[in-house]
Design a protein around this nucleic acid. Sequence first.
DNA 1: TTGATTAGATTAAACGTTTGACTTAGATAA
DNA 2: TTATCTAAGTCAAACGTTTAATCTAATCAA
Lengths: 346, 346
Amino acid sequence: MGKATTLKDIASIAGVSVATVSLALNGKPEGRVSAEIVERIEEIARKLNYQPDVNAQRLKGKRLPLVGLLVPNITNPFYSEMTKGIMDAGRELGCYVVLFNADNAHESEAIAMEVFISMRVAGAIICGICDPGTEEEKTLETLKKTGIQVLMIDRSEWNGHWPRIMIDNFQAAYDSVTYLYKQGHRKIALIATAWDLNIINDRERGYKKAMQDLGLDDSCIYRISTYQLTGMGAETVAEEVLVNLDKQTAVLVIPGDTLAIECILYWKNHGVQIPEELSVVGFDNIYMCQITDPPLTTVDQPKYEMGRGAMELLVQLIDEGQNRDCRKVYKHRIIERGTVKKINQG
Amino acid sequence: MGKATTLKDIASIAGVSVATVSLALNGKPEGRVSAEIVERIEEIARKLNYQPDVNAQRLKGKRLPLVGLLVPNITNPFYSEMTKGIMDAGRELGCYVVLFNADNAHESEAIAMEVFISMRVAGAIICGICDPGTEEEKTLETLKKTGIQVLMIDRSEWNGHWPRIMIDNFQAAYDSVTYLYKQGHRKIALIATAWDLNIINDRERGYKKAMQDLGLDDSCIYRISTYQLTGMGAETVAEEVLVNLDKQTAVLVIPGDTLAIECILYWKNHGVQIPEELSVVGFDNIYMCQITDPPLTTVDQPKYEMGRGAMELLVQLIDEGQNRDCRKVYKHRIIERGTVKKINQG
DNA sequence: TTGATTAGATTAAACGTTTGACTTAGATAA
DNA sequence: TTATCTAAGTCAAACGTTTAATCTAATCAA
């Protein structure tokens, strides 16, 4: 198989030294190469489709135009939207993405970190497990020591002091309870995964605080231990809610829409009228919310913008080259659609 | 900021030469380093979290454990499923993915190719425009000359002689027409984007051939010129079909499910009963098909498996290091759900 | 004892860039 | 004339690896 064009190839054709070619193509210190030769070299480079070898450049001290991205599951619309935002901003900034799908598995995440170090990426955007005290937190420290800027996305303050892109999950859950209250609901339940994830805890605390502040009972919580995007797991909680249908008029579902949608599907198949018999609020506002019947009322996270913001902030931090403690909190927003019934409180 | 651990660091701690460390850590030619020293070096490497610099390794002739992946839109479930398959197989094979979202734009795809060359990736999985005669086809040739193995995915035979992962799009469309025929439909329409994409042409030819073979009128085709996943564009065709509702009892929608789902949404909002007044068959079998009301009958493409197969084949080709003309055709399958009405033909 | 063998380690070159130091030749100043 | 300056290039070292070639003792055979 062939090889890529090098400076040497160009040099020998142009009849100059490798250094001259490098100087000409980078054109930084004005006037070290005559205009005539610069032109000749550029012509040859174009003809041979020359692209500098970033591996070699990095060895000489330039940073790799590459960042690592760790997501739980790229097929989850939430993450694919976010990823697109990251990549779009990256393209504008000349920074590209090594994607890693980690399935929320410690082992996979460990491999990802090793790969990031091995590639000497300039930075890493992490949406992983990385709880304080875990092995992974140490690995993140290693990344940092290694010179790789780390940025967390969609993770809680509780996940340590890292630059961070997030929404206020506590407040978002608080607001959705308030919203349901304003629609007349008083018996509001929570469906939550038992994932050991701090953003889930934040949302759960938001739910509880709101219920307490409103003087309502905050103990109607359905816990689901296993849950994946592609089904399995939703049925168990959905059924649990079904047999206790009179215990609530509305339910808030976290982590979010995909679970909510599966529950709704189950309830509809079992003859429950949504929202007449049960109102539902999701979380994330993925595209699918628009096509369910009825369309799902949910809390919007600006996924795409968060992705963009993450890449922009990361590149900025990389350029600064030092450790600034910074976070950017994006605005959530309740999107009213068809799964919440308005109740007239006498 | 810190720097990553190098062989040199380890060597100076262990009190041996850099070469010895390299030999010890790679452990290939048995018995060139004493067991005692190997152990000492491994200990130090572990303690310092040493990860070899793949950029340097590549310079010395090893291939980068990195392949480029070009997709039209990662937020489209079809591509994110495929991408996950690619990454899962990649992890098993020790090969990682630089992702590029190109939005079907020539300019973006050109940038992607340049980046792939610049990074000296070992291979590239391309789901791009790359029609024969286009600038892009030349770029693919450049990739190949540069030593980057190229593999196409979800692209037609008409897109040139490249190793390829695909389904038989002609046959899949043919089969869905046959299926509708067996359900009693005789007036079968086609909704198709006007994209200049060979797989669309293949499917359209499949539709026409099937209609002709069945002795049916193959001219009821609705063409839609602009269409994106996130809405806009579907309304125009959907409306066109609506005003001509008596012209067909069923419609086949290509490229696929996302468009079909939007159309159904429009029709339902305008009082059309699905499937009573109009049967619909989609294409791709994305997850969303299961949650629409009624769930969408569609042609399944094994997206995840195709992704896996792509990475496996690519790595194989890279290892072989030569150009084999090969293609792998995956099986499509009609998934019967709720959008096709069974008609009793007197 | 001498010469050959071998295990175990080192040297040095190379990969493709970048860049500070250096060279050369022509131009200018004194 | 001689010294100085400048423009336009080249040299060579370095980045972190890998590996063929080489070196060095210690071991062994005769």
